[in-house]
Amino acid sequence: MINSKAIERYRTKFLAHLEQKPISKEPRNLYEPISYILGLGGKRMRPVLTLMTAELFGGKVENALDAALAIEVFHNFSLVHDDIMDDAPLRRGNATVHEKWDVNTGILSGDAMLIYAYQCFENYPAETYKALTKLFSKTAIEVCEGQQYDVDFETRDDVTIPEYLKMIEYKTAVLVAAAMQMGAIVAGAKTEDANSIYEFGRNLGIAFQLQDDYLDAFGDPKTFGKQVGGDIMENKKTFLFLKAMEFAPSDDREGLMHLYSIQPDDAMAKVDTVKAIFMESGAVEATKKEIENYTNKAFSTLEGLNIPDENKALLKEFGENLMRRTV
């Protein structure tokens, strides 16, 4: 069963592998920030998915560890550069790399991490290496495209729902999808099965991000782990916002646009007003429906998979647990 115990087993194996690859070379100011960001924790969801998928396709967890490491190093590289772009002071409750060192160090250490991620594939046989790096390069460029869309949307008032869904697909979902497909590739799965598990991960990744949008506004502050209402305070045009702009009466739409153009002294009053518009307009229900829609799309890709039924059931259970999360 893919319960917390099974996920903890994958996470423990991955962390042991991470510790066996110490990045303690000279010059220290290049490598220390890499060790620092990789050591800050996090859920390690993507490497866990790589290991889990490899095993579900009949492969060995040990053979998937380097691919899992590549995914985690790349993910953290993107966070280092995103934090610079956002001028973010904190990451997982600790100082961001550019705050702890400086911006130039953050840029250079991030660059080194991207190169190191590619080096993680070098121990694989030629055919596996080729398949992994091809998928990885496609994914990496899509993540960059997603980040650029996100930046562009900050200054646009005409973002459409399809554009927003494409942005979260590229910025978040494709890396989840690639993490799973890499596990399948390492396990020697058939191409059509590897492609199906990619689609499972992609749709689940979109559902995951939409769930994140919802929890950011309506999550429980005790369990969510981030400040509830953060997206509203930062005027982020999430799925909730776009649906409210589509459904709300014109007075509420004007009020919403006004609230998203200011930074009032009483931030929580703004958050409460915006949340009320989200609820009254039907945006909350529409968001929940879309989360369910993408979750079901993910589950439908499992039907044609060439793996035992109990393994399909495990993947479905994993997806259901992910959608029930409160953090």
Rank of each mutant, 00 (worst) to 15 (best):
A177K: 02
F224A: 07
D265W: 00
V186F: 07
H81W: 02
L108E: 09
L165D: 07
A178K: 00
V284C: 14
R253D: 00
N76F: 04
Y124P: 04
L30T: 03
L315E: 00
P162Y: 05
T105W: 00
D213G: 03
V284E: 14
S35L: 12
M257D: 08
V228C: 08
E303L: 11
S78T: 14
S261Y: 02
E192K: 12
P27V: 04
N123S: 13
K288L: 15
A244F: 02
I206C: 01
Q20H: 13
E317M: 10
P22I: 11
G230V: 02
A6W: 11
L69C: 14
K288T: 03
K21W: 11
F153P: 01
T105H: 09
A179K: 07
T287P: 08
A187C: 00
I37K: 03
N3V: 04
G93A: 12
D102H: 15
A298E: 01
A54Q: 09
L38G: 02
L314A: 14
K190N: 12
G110P: 01
F224H: 07
V284R: 13
K134P: 09
S300I: 05
L30Q: 04
I107V: 15
M45W: 15
L18R: 08
V274W: 02
M233P: 07
I7K: 15
S35W: 11
V186A: 04
R91S: 15
N195G: 01
P308F: 08
I185D: 04
A244E: 07
A177Q: 04
F278K: 02
D193Y: 08
T273R: 13
G42M: 06
T105C: 13
E285K: 15
G59W: 05
T128S: 12
A267F: 10
A283W: 03
R46G: 03
K43H: 08
N321T: 10
N306Y: 06
G146H: 04
G225Q: 01
P264R: 00
Y31S: 08
T295H: 11
K270P: 04
L322K: 10
G59D: 06
G201C: 03
I291F: 10
A267N: 14
